[in-house]
Design a protein around this nucleic acid. Structure first.
Lengths: 346, 346
DNA sequence: GACACTTTTTAAACGCGTTTAATAAGTATG
DNA sequence: CATACTTATTAAACGCGTTTAAAAAGTGTC
């Protein structure tokens, strides 16, 4: 369907949208014939044909064989060429900067770590990226994950790191490195990655809950979109009032016990989380609440679910899932970079 | 911009989207020249011209005068013809059924009330609508508001009214009355109406909070879309855990005092609402939380805000607004019917 | 091994929005 | 009152996706 408010809907944009659709479908399907693509993407056969022929000529896609005949002429089977473009994910963390180079299939080509650039500023980050791009000239887009609030994928402000505060990193990258870039908050990237890994459809809301040593936080997905809030404060669940005079964060702190935030959580922490999950269910009614599996899994999740059912009817409680946070975070950034890559002109 | 997943993006759909955009812009602007429409809708001048000429020929729009010259040829000014199509809003309530006929400017042509059809079933509703349409043959779309969960604007189930449970009312209307119809939950319709009245842009999340005699509920708007949740349970804030062992609803009940749910709320209720608002702020971070002004306004809202600031930093608290629930509800249904009307072919 | 039947692929004609150029309708000024 | 300058409107040419028809490439059967 179309979205008119705001953006222009010219034929050129239509072409680009269709190109993107074909690319994404071909990626998701692994390989496909023109007829399959036409059907699954809802685009007419001739258009798919022209787009795909062009992609093959450019080296972006390639013929991988002939299908068995189903009674008539045998169809050619196409697949994306993973060597054609690469993406870059950069994780800006407090004590280090991690990066990963990957192809459009998601295979990581190289991983690396450097000293944190958060204190240094944007120039240091740009220098690092320039260096990586020298080694992998086929990199065509960058996704940057940050532990702070992000506005529209562009500007962001991190409380303690003045050099990046309210800095439009995407525009800076576009100008200095002539490469498209997205910036996204770490929790939001993780929830995007999780959603992508488990189906990828819009579906019901998803909440990614991170308990964390530096205070809990959450990434929210509603109708397929990240929730940012009016002051970029959404997901700051540490402030949710829990008991008569305790916030979620304080309750977690006080009930944390000796092993503070590691899997077998003490009953007090389970209770606090159950109440938060119940609140989420009664407000957003997510289909899933995802936990970092190092912080909560198996038995703990079952305990949380049991407690939560005391507040909210069990059929309306979300499925509680344990997942690999680091992997989801990477996947989210990959998805974001891939979206950029796929939206580019030939 | 475009949205490819799912829907086909053919030129015809493009035409329809543009037609809709021109209609909505013309409605919002009241009157406009072709150049103004072209600029504000992001559509090229010739296209706006063709569309508008056609609309004038069909009687849908009309010339309302010539602009003063701004140095050159004077521009023709156009406006929608409010007599061309009408919309119908039907409110299915527990003890009565209310309807309103209105034109595309939102002016209500007629209001009426009948005995509730919730016990009778869909056929009684269809008969009522048929009767109204006989009196106003220009009605081209219907929006139906119900006090129950709605799925994708089509099917819905109300706990106590079996005849409507899981019934696809939209399809039924399309088939029997050959008229497009939407069905929407009352709280969701109200929040859509409020959003529409106060700007109408997508903007930050909005929550419409209704305390209600039959238990509180909320309508949520995120990124411009209604939040429905995985089991259509979103907004059921009565279940939010508040104190050590009380839900929001029980707290409200016990603290309600003698005047139960009327404007000067007792301190206990204010406290409960403040905690709920704080939870909303920490999870969704809405820009506004709207109250029925008969339940809370002025002083009460100030008290809630003051209390809320004890839990969440004041700058991240939503603006608390008192509004007219009935009017917002009507406006929401009008907007939904209008969306249908505007999306139709000539 | 030629003929009928499928299925894939290519080609032509059409609709629609856009860009670019041309025309029409005013205003200001000498 | 005629000429230059602005602004609005109309017309022509182009790009793009779609629908519809034609051609190409296989498979099976008598």
């Amino acid at each position: 369907m179309f979205e008119t408010e705001g953006g222009a809907a010219n034929p050129q944009a239509m072409r680009l949208a269709m190109l993107k659709a074909v690319r994404l479908k071909l990626l998701r399907l692994g390989s496909a014939t023109k007829a399959e693509l036409s059907r699954s993407a809802g685009i007419s056969f001739p258009t798919v044909g022209k787009l795909l022929d062009r992609m093959v000529k450019d080296g972006e896609a390639k013929v991988v064989g002939l299908d068995e005949s189903s009674g008539g002429r045998r169809a050619l089977r196409y697949a994306m060429n993973p060597e054609h473009v690469l993406g870059l994910a950069v994780f800006l963390e407090r004590d280090e900067t991690v990066f990963a180079v990957f192809d459009c299939l998601g295979d990581v080509k190289e991983r690396g770590r450097r000293a944190s650039v958060l204190d240094e500023g944007p120039d240091a980050l740009a220098e690092l990226v320039r260096e990586i791009v020298r080694a992998y000239p086929k990199i065509g887009a960058t996704a940057i994950g940050v532990p702070g609030a992000v506005n529209g994928g562009r500007a962001f402000h991190i409380p303690d790191y003045g050099k990046f505060r309210d800095f439009d990193l995407a525009a800076y990258f576009e100008e200095r490195l002539s490469m498209p870039a997205v910036v996204e908050n770490d929790m939001n990237a993780a929830v995007i990655g999780y959603r992508d890994r488990s189906g990828g459809t819009a579906g019901p809301p998803v909440v990614y809950l991170y308990l964390g040593k530096n205070g809990p936080g959450a990434g929210l997905l509603v109708n397929g979109d990240v929730v940012r809030g009016s002051t970029f404060f959404s997901g700051e669940v540490s402030f949710v009032p829990l008991d008569r005079d305790r916030s979620f964060e304080r309750a977690l702190d006080e009930e944390g016990g000796p092993g503070r935030g590691r899997d077998p959580l003490p009953p007090g922490a389970v209770e606090a989380i159950a109440r938060l999950v119940a609140s989420l269910a009664a407000i957003l009614n997510p289909g899933e609440v995802v936990f970092n599996r190092e912080e909560a899994s198996g038995e703990t999740l079952a305990a949380i679910a049991a407690k939560g059912a005391e507040y909210v009817p069990a059929e309306h409680l979300p499925r509680l899932v344990a997942s690999d946070w680091t992997q989801d975070y990477l996947l989210g950034l990959q998805r974001l970079a891939l979206d950029l890559l796929m939206a580019k002109e030939h």
